[in-house]
Design a binder for these strands. Sequence first.
RNA 1: GCGGGUGUAGCUCAGUCGGUUAGAGCGCCAGAUUGUGGCUCUGGAGGCCGUGGGUUCAAUCCCCAUCACUCGCCCCA
Length: 414
Amino acid sequence: MAKLQPVRGTHDLLPDDARRHRHIVETGLAIASRYGFGEIETPIFEFTEVFKRTLGEASDVVSKEMYTFTDRGGDEITLRPEGTAGVARALISGGLSQSLPLKLYYQGPMFRYERPQKGRQRQFHQIGIELLGVPEPQADIEVIACGADILAALGILDRTVLELNTLGDAESRGAYRAALVSYFQDHAEALSEDSRHRLTVNPLRILDSKNEGDRAIVANAPSFDDHLNPLSQDFFAAVTEGLSALGIACQRNMRLVRGLDYYCHTAFEFVTDALGAQGTVMGGGRYDGLVETMGGPAIPGVGWAAGIERLAMMVDGVPGPARPIALVPVGVGVERALMALAHRLRKAGHTVEHGYSGNVGKRLKRAGRLGARVALILGEDELARGVIQRRDLDAGAQEEVPLDGIEGHLARFR
RNA sequence: GCGGGUGUAGCUCAGUCGGUUAGAGCGCCAGAUUGUGGCUCUGGAGGCCGUGGGUUCAAUCCCCAUCACUCGCCCCA
């Protein structure tokens, strides 16, 4: 620690950034509430086992990206790398399976030990929703629609594309996986080193390889659609038809596979080309096997997560802070009276700022910088007469008004 | 974890083919205006030139290492 600086991959959220994040979190919650989602907060750390079991031992997240430590009691603890596992754990340990379906919205920091770059940090923030206990495709449609609505409310939906794919049910996925492995094994010699590794760890991932040689081989790989059983085909058809009925445009992306083991059927991402290498703004899908994998009852689920930092880079129109009323004293004799006035106005619901120091000019200048709508200027003379100068900083107009009932007078300047 | 680029004032960036006091714009502070902001003018503060080591009479500049940032890969939000 040569210099006092934040840990690599972590950042302070200064007031402007914090406001941006809050806007996203609150917009997300407001929209999700319309869909019947309620907020849940789970701890930001869990027993390491929770993530190992749900994400799969071989996944990148578990094998190299987790912040894991042993606590003073000797327990293996991990800072959450994503939100779904914690929600599923809460469902089981809280006995929430008695109140299905569950519709949950969450928000908060996640931690992954990765090399930072644009749109990727070691501590980052997500919003997300999970809909648990509904096996029908209507749940998938609703979850995606909710996501699209949030992106629309943030003003970024039209800069994203919804990519959609199906991984089929367990049977279909297993059959396809076997066909893929067999195909790629025949071409293993020609595959890139990365993809040969993927062959053993996550063969579906090869479909998404950016390596040119791999792409040539992928072009002739078996098609997922040929391995979907009728049930999976019907499920996917219901999802696409539902989206289309809601006017939500999407693109089939046959190479879209989610990295995490527990996904089935629907997989989707809202992607953009505005964020460099990190194209995914919101990603999710169906995870029917997850809760059971964790040792709970067989409860299906579907959900998504979105990176707040990535959203923040695309959002404009973040509401600014409330415009304050600036109090300006003339001379030291009135400062006590102004302090009392500030207190009075704040109790009445106004946002009030003091200038703290300097002459009238300085304080008005500072008031302008703070974005004040009005300044109240008070001197000995005004105080004695029970009045105050109310200056409209936008219009540049000034008027003398009685101190009595000033709260009401200011109402129109909020 | 792998590969490339960049670190000079609060911010954006010049600059020194190695040479004595390192600059600009914006921002900040103050004055012109001791009771009136936004414009203008004047002045001021603020830099171990990321950090450590090496080469040299001399390093902000060259070399090595390190840290941070950044772009890409892997993976993902």
